[in-house]
C-alpha cells in the first residue's frame, strides 16, 4: 500500500503540472485526462468492485457489516483527533481520542460504537481538510485511479492519511493485506446505495459527482458551517 501511496503522490504532482485540454471549467483544467481515468475506474468498478461488494453485502448480515465499519472507523478516530488538534480544535480532538479509548476497550476493539451512545459524537476529518483549514485552496480537481474524486490538495492529504494510518504496521503482511481488502470491500458495499442514487440522479455522472464532491469537501472543511453562498 505504501507503494501505491508513493505512486499516488507522484501522480498527483505530475497531473497538476501537466496541462491537459480544458472543457471550460476553471476548477477542472484536467477534465480530459480526468474523464479518461474516470472511465477506467468505472470499468474496474462495474466488473470487479461492485460485484464483489454485492456478494459481500448479501453474504454478511447488516449487523456484522456494521461491526466491520465500526472497527475501521475506530482506528480512524486516532488521526481524526490529530487533525482536529492540528486545526486548533482542542475539544474536538480530545473528544475523538476519548472515543478511541472507550470504543477500543468497552466497545471491544472498536466493534461497538459505545462512545456515540454516551454522547461523544463521531467527526469527519483528514489531512486534506486540515490543509484546507490552514488556507490551502483545493487546486485542480482530480480523478485518482481506483480512489475516484479528489483535488490536488485532497490527493496530497490522502497520501499523508495513508502514510500515517496504523493498519500498515500490521504483520504478517498477509494479515495486513486481508485488513486492507476487507476495508475496501466493506467501504464499497457501504456506497452501493449512494452510487445507485448517483446513477439515477445525474444527467452526466462525471459532472454530477464532481460538483457533489467539491461542495461536500468545502462543507467538511468548514465543519458543516460554510459561509453561505446565495444562489441567484
Amino acid at each position: 500500500m505504501s507503494g501505491y501511496v508513493r505512486v499516488l503522490a507522484g501522480l498527483v504532482l505530475v497531473l497538476a503540472s501537466a496541462c491537459a485540454t480544458t472543457n471550460g471549467d476553471e476548477r477542472d483544467p484536467l477534465e480530459g485526462l480526468n474523464r479518461g481515468i474516470y472511465r477506467f475506474n468505472e470499468t474496474f468498478d462495474e466488473y470487479l468492485a461492485t460485484p464483489v461488494a454485492t456478494v459481500y453485502r448479501k453474504a454478511l448480515h447488516a449487523e456484522i457489516r456494521g461491526r466491520v465499519s465500526n472497527f475501521f472507523a475506530n482506528i480512524q478516530d486516532i488521526f481524526i483527533g490529530v487533525n482536529n488538534l492540528l486545526q486548533g480544535k482542542f475539544e474536538d480532538g480530545v473528544n475523538d481520542w476519548v472515543r478511541f479509548a472507550f470504543n477500543s476497550t468497552f466497545g471491544l476493539f472498536g466493534l461497538h460504537d459505545v462512545a456515540s451512545e454516551w454522547g461523544y459524537e463521531k467527526h469527519n476529518e483528514d489531512f486534506g481538510q486540515t490543509f484546507g483549514r490552514w488556507g490551502a485552496g483545493p487546486g485542480p480537481y482530480l480523478i485518482l485511479p481506483f480512489l475516484g474524486s479528489s483535488t490536488l490538495r485532497d490527493g496530497l492529504g490522502t497520501a499523508v492519511d495513508w502514510t500515517v494510518q496504523p493498519v500498515g504496521e500490521v504483520r504478517p503482511i498477509a494479515a495486513r493485506n486481508t485488513l486492507y481488502g476487507l476495508y475496501f470491500v466493506n467501504r464499497r458495499a457501504e456506497l452501493l446505495e449512494a452510487s445507485r442514487i448517483l446513477e439515477e440522479a445525474a444527467l452526466d455522472k462525471y459532472t454530477f459527482q464532481r460538483e457533489a464532491y467539491l461542495q461536500l469537501r468545502r462543507n467538511l472543511i468548514y465543519d458543516g458551517r460554510p459561509p453561505r453562498e446565495k444562489l441567484e
Binding site: D204, E211, Q215, L216, R218, P226
Partner: peptide
C-alpha cells in the same frame, strides 16, 4: 451533507 441539489444541477 452540505451538497446543494440545486447547485449540483446548475453546472449540468
Amino acid at each position: 451533507g452540505g451538497v446543494s441539489l440545486v447547485a449540483n444541477y446548475r453546472t449540468e
